[in-house]
């Protein structure tokens, strides 16, 4: 049973089609990398998968045991967050809110948050302020928050943007371990070399679907050449 099945999916803003007729599936344990140039519809697809915008046509079908709010989302960081006064613990705990509303966090939510902080190696930082952390540490915090929301599926929006090379490799390693533990990954990225190396499947968007298939066959395609060639010239 697939976790997510998208069939002939199209999205439009104000009548202008930005994603046209894409079809792909995500199996449990998969590691799908979504690549494409700026404005190719990657962010739109993410919003669609999160249920924030409705498709113009086509369908997104979630697997039987996956609820719409059970997608662990790792968003791109916004300027608001960079100087937001919040402790690591507060941020990670807020991931657990999709388990139903209670005025206070339950013991179960707290335990889950603690376990995820340990898993991400940030438990010792839990009383630190989020804005005082390094970029890599902040990503670990947001990752722990996403895991507190769910361990079924992680949806990551350009997670390595703005990280230094060391922190980038560090993040890829973390994600690889999570995937090996059975967490399904969908990652939107500009980093094609690592996408091919780390991912199991590649979805290449350019408004429409240019490539969808196994990662190891992708580099030989003309789609990959167009993106890589473009990237090297810039």
């Amino acid at each position: 049973m697939a976790l997510i099945t998208c069939k002939n999916l199209s999205f439009a803003y104000d009548g202008r089609v930005v994603v046209d007729n894409i079809s792909f599936g995500v199996e449990p344990g998969d590691y799908l990398c979504v690549v494409g140039a700026n404005g190719s519809g990657k962010s739109t697809l993410i919003k669609g998968l999160l249920g924030l915008i409705k498709p113009q046509s086509g369908s997104i079908q979630l697997g039987e045991d996956l609820q719409q709010n059970e997608i662990g989302y790792l968003p791109q960081q916004t300027t608001v967050q960079r100087d937001f006064p919040a402790s690591v613990q507060e941020v990670v705990l807020s991931g657990g809110l999709n388990h139903g509303w209670t005025p206070f966090y339950t013991r179960r939510q707290k335990n889950m948050a603690a376990a995820n902080m340990m898993c991400m190696g940030i438990y010792d930082l839990r009383h630190k302020s989020y804005r005082e952390l390094s970029g890599g540490q902040q990503q670990r915090v947001l990752l722990a928050r996403a895991l507190t929301a769910t361990r079924k599926l992680l949806l990551m929006d350009e997670p390595v943007t703005g990280l230094d090379p060391l922190a980038t490799q560090d993040l890829y390693e973390l994600v690889r371990h999570l995937n090996q533990d059975g967490v399904t990954i969908i990652m939107v990225t500009h980093d094609i070399e690592n996408a091919v190396q780390e991912g199991k499947h590649i979805l290449h968007l350019a408004g429409r679907e240019l490539y969808y298939g196994p990662a190891n066959g992708y580099l030989q395609t003309s789609a990959a050449q167009s993106l890589l060639g473009g990237a090297h010239h810039v």
């Binding site: 999160l50 249920g51 924030l52 719409q68 709010n69 997608i71 989302y73 968003p75 916004t78 608001v80 967050q81 937001f84 919040a86 507060e90 941020v91 705990l93 807020s94 991931g95 809110l97 999709n98 509303w101 005025p103 206070f104 966090y105 928050r145 929301a149």
Partner: peptide
């Protein structure tokens, strides 16, 4: 309180988790 925190800190994430 917790929902207000989440909506303030990260609205997209809040929406994605069903708030």
């Amino acid at each position: 309180y917790h929902n207000i925190f989440t909506v303030t800190f990260d609205e997209t994430f809040a929406r994605a988790t069903g708030i």
